[in-house]
Design a protein around this nucleic acid. Sequence first.
DNA 1: GATAAGGGGACCGCAACGGTCCTGTTTCGT
DNA 2: ACGAAACAGGACCGTTGCGGTCCCCTTATC
Lengths: 159, 159
Amino acid sequence: MLRLSKLTDYAVVVMVRLGRGEAVQTSPCIAAATGVPEPTVAKVLKILSAAGLVASHRGARGGYRLVRPLDAVPIADIIAAIDGPIALTACVDGGTSCEAQGLCPMRGRWDPVNRAIEAALAGITLADMADPGPTFAAPGEAAALGPRALPLSALHVAE
Amino acid sequence: MLRLSKLTDYAVVVMVRLGRGEAVQTSPCIAAATGVPEPTVAKVLKILSAAGLVASHRGARGGYRLVRPLDAVPIADIIAAIDGPIALTACVDGGTSCEAQGLCPMRGRWDPVNRAIEAALAGITLADMADPGPTFAAPGEAAALGPRALPLSALHVAE
DNA sequence: GATAAGGGGACCGCAACGGTCCTGTTTCGT
DNA sequence: ACGAAACAGGACCGTTGCGGTCCCCTTATC
């Protein structure tokens, strides 16, 4: 299914959340606002921090803030931070495999595919995924929309 | 890593092999020619046959043949046949999940990403991944190329 | 009728992922 | 100076899906 890790999904939610409200937000606060379990939020933020996508501030009154605005963060960066480099097969990156056989029939063949995907992902920013805009849906309105097609901001009413 | 299943990799190898030589080839023959284990080749071919990408002929002197030429088979078809529909997250296809929470913050947000990837994969055909052309590398030449950048035809010298 | 080949499953081991928790270390507030 | 708040980093399992193999049945040719 071209599996994308669930953590990446959470990372987008967390990043978009960071793009709103206070400039510096704590992970418990983000967890409460998004509905994502707090340990998971913390884990995601640690990874994003290590990747340089968010900046952290330690100690009391600490928290995280965005380094770049949402429209300057391509989705490819998030995927690369959580799931590692964008490569469809294990044969194309470090190249540690395929040594046993000595001859991997697909050597380098997936490169154009990987480049095409990378280009596609580089053209979409987090702002594109959060574009419902500044209007927040009220709880009643969100429920009226049914289980499908809920805007990203649906969970933000909890804030 | 945007994991793509290994079976898909094998499927491309098998399909490209089917694009060469005899029109109808048996799975043991393909296994011997590509170096892929025979049970795995058979499994891949069954899936490809069910997806309509190859046609099968049962009985003695049976085998498989391509339905469409390689340059008419986008890589997206192979991925869809092996890995299922191209969708980065479980939330975008059938939509059976996220019912427990009732509110999935990413509802529909991944759609543009999925469409971009699908478009990218639809533009690359199997012929693009097999383009070393009619010239087959001799074993010595293939070895001289080093562990990297081996052409797809490298294993076909075994035929 | 014997044989060769595909059809359709079932089966099991393994590795990766999701999710949680624990123990530091740092900084702000009192 | 002390304590609390919050990040840093890693360890820890359960689960899930995948890779790989094997079996029996059906079909078609010789």
